Every structure is written in structure tokens, then in C-alpha cells.
Simulated scan of single mutants.
Amino acid sequence: MATELLQIEPAELRFVFELKKQSSCLVQLANTTDHFIAFKVKTTSPKKYCVRPNIGIVKPNDKCDFTVTMQAQRMAPPDMLCKDKFLIQSTVVPFGTTEDDITSDMFSKDSGKYIEEKKLRVVLISPPSSPVLLPVNGDMKHDPSNEIYVQKDRVPSGVENIPPPCKVSDEVKGLEPAQDMKEDREDEDIVPRQAENVGDMKPAKDDMQLNLTNESEELKSKLSVMDSKLRVAEVTITKLNEERHRNTQEKDLLKKELEVLKRQINTKGSQAGFPFLFVCMVALISVAVGYYIHP
């Protein structure tokens, strides 16, 4: 395709480099065509930079901006030279396409679609008041103007004033990391890694929600089964308690009946014999009668 899909400004990413400070660079994409253009940003150092947004749609004859933020670094690169690169891919998409419709397949060259790729290199710039080494005729020398500021910051006791820690601005917070790319040392071509974008993450979220729904339904079914088992157990315990109470009552009745029977047996035994006094009287009468009959 002879027509350029997107015009990119600036042609290189320039960051003001300061130790332990973040630095941002604004990039503008201009769509001069009559088509909807989808873009995707990749980098060779995804852990070092954040891009917001890293994908998007540029409407016909419209512009779109994205911000690249370099994370705070603890060490300066040699000679302030940076080999990091960015790759901006763009392709024509159907009319009315939104960011949610963007997938990684849109930027795949295997599909036969035209994918426009533009590379941006990273340039590090020293801040005006930073005591960094400046290259002069191949030799590294200190900037004399910076030495004055360093001397002013020193305390007479010999202890240097430590500047307060820099706060991260609200604009920098929440930036999304750019996607991975590999750098070929021989021809310095950029080979992008496969990374998930916002459109690809939605099915994963739907799957997670579906799994959570299924798990909640399984838990509910298990809880209902447990409730039914508990109810059956409560009914069984109630029946056992009632039977125990009945058995106790029957046992008490049997004890009472045994006591009554014992009393009846004792009463009958006492009624079956003759009293001792009665026996004595009968004996005396018998003796007297015998004496009178046989004098």
C-alpha cells in the first residue's frame, strides 16, 4: 500500500534522564486516510517503559495521542546511549471498529493483511542542571556550570544535602506496560513477542466469571444437600429421643408392677398360715377336751 496509514510525531522518543526519576514523552498519531486505523505499540524493554494506551483506533482524518513513560532508573547507561526501540504497527479495520474489538490477529502478517510498521528509537537527554558527563572531542568532561550548583548544595561540615525524593505525578500513575519485543543485534530489526491485549483479556474474564458462577452453583447444591441431610438427622434424633422416653416410661411401669406383685405375694403368704396364738389356743382346748374325755 503506497499511502501512509499514520503519521507519527515525533520521529524519535526523547526522554530527560535523571536518576531515580520518571520521564514521559507524548507521541501523536495522525490518520490522513478515509479508513479506520488500528494501532499497537511494542517495545524491546517492556519492564522499563509504560505505554498508555498501547492499542487504539484512529478515526479517518483524526489524531490520537499516547504517552510513553520511562520508569525511574538507578544507573545511567554508558555515554547516555540507549539501544531501546519502539515499534508502532497499524492496519486498516472495518468502519465503526472500537478498541474493545481489537485482537492480536489483526496485526498478524500471516492473515495476508497489510501491516504498516514504524520504528522509533530512544534518545536520552541530560537535564540542564544535572552534573552529568558531556562528550567533548570523544572525552567525557564535567559541565563547569553544574559544578557551581553542586558546591552550593554542600554543607560546611562536609556532608552533602540529599534532595527530597521525587513524587510520581498523577499522570504517570497507572500507566500500562508496553508489549514485548526482541532486538536483533546484527541488523537491529525488532521482532515482536506475542502479547495479550485488552481485547484478548475479555474472554479470559468471561471464562473466570463463568467458572466462578459454576463453582457458586456447585456450592449451593452441596449446601442444599447438607441441609437436607441435617434435617433428616434432626428428625432421626427426635424419634430416638421419643423412643428413649417411651422406654423409660415403660421401665418405670414395669418396676411399679413388680413392686405390686411382690406385695401381693407377701400378703397371700401371710394369709395362708395360722397365727401362733390361734395354734396355742387350739392346743390348749385339745388338751382340755382330752383330759375330760379320758380322766
Rank of each mutant, 00 (worst) to 15 (best):
E176H: 11
D105N: 13
F95Q: 06
E183A: 12
S45I: 01
H35G: 02
R244V: 13
P163K: 07
L19S: 06
L210Y: 07
F86Q: 00
Q194L: 09
D187I: 10
L277H: 13
F39Y: 08
V58G: 01
P144M: 03
N161L: 06
D100Y: 11
V27L: 02
E99M: 06
Y114S: 08
L6K: 04
K40E: 09
K167M: 07
L253H: 13
K113W: 06
E250W: 07
L277R: 14
N61W: 07
A178T: 07
S157F: 04
F15G: 01
E259W: 12
C25H: 04
A204Y: 10
P156Y: 12
Y114F: 06
P144Q: 03
R244I: 13
G112T: 02
L175V: 14
D153W: 05
S228C: 05
V232K: 12
E250L: 09
G269D: 15
V198N: 06
D100F: 10
L219P: 00
L5K: 00
S129Q: 12
T267R: 14
E12S: 11
C82A: 05
A288R: 12
L212Q: 14
D206I: 10
P177K: 12
T267H: 14
N214R: 08
E196K: 10
K109V: 04
K21Y: 04
H35K: 05
T238G: 15
G269P: 11
N214S: 11
V51W: 01
L223E: 10
T98N: 03
S126V: 04
R121D: 14
P164D: 09
P163M: 11
R193E: 15
G158E: 06
A38R: 00
D101L: 01
E183Y: 10
G158I: 02
I55F: 00
L175N: 11
L230P: 01
A178I: 00
T238L: 10
L240H: 05
M70W: 04
A38S: 01
P135C: 01
Q7N: 11
T238R: 13
V225D: 09
L277D: 15
K85D: 04
K48Q: 05
V155G: 09
I88K: 02
L87I: 03
H142Q: 10
S23K: 00
P295S: 12
E196V: 10
R246Q: 14
D65L: 04
Q7D: 13
D207V: 03
D101I: 02
T238I: 08
L210V: 08
A204D: 06
K220D: 12
L253P: 14
D139L: 08
Y149G: 13
P135I: 04
H245F: 13
M75D: 09
V172W: 03
A30R: 07
T103V: 03
Y292N: 08
N241C: 11
T267P: 11
E243F: 04
Y114D: 07
D84Q: 00
V225A: 09
P46Q: 08
L175K: 06
G96H: 00
V279R: 15
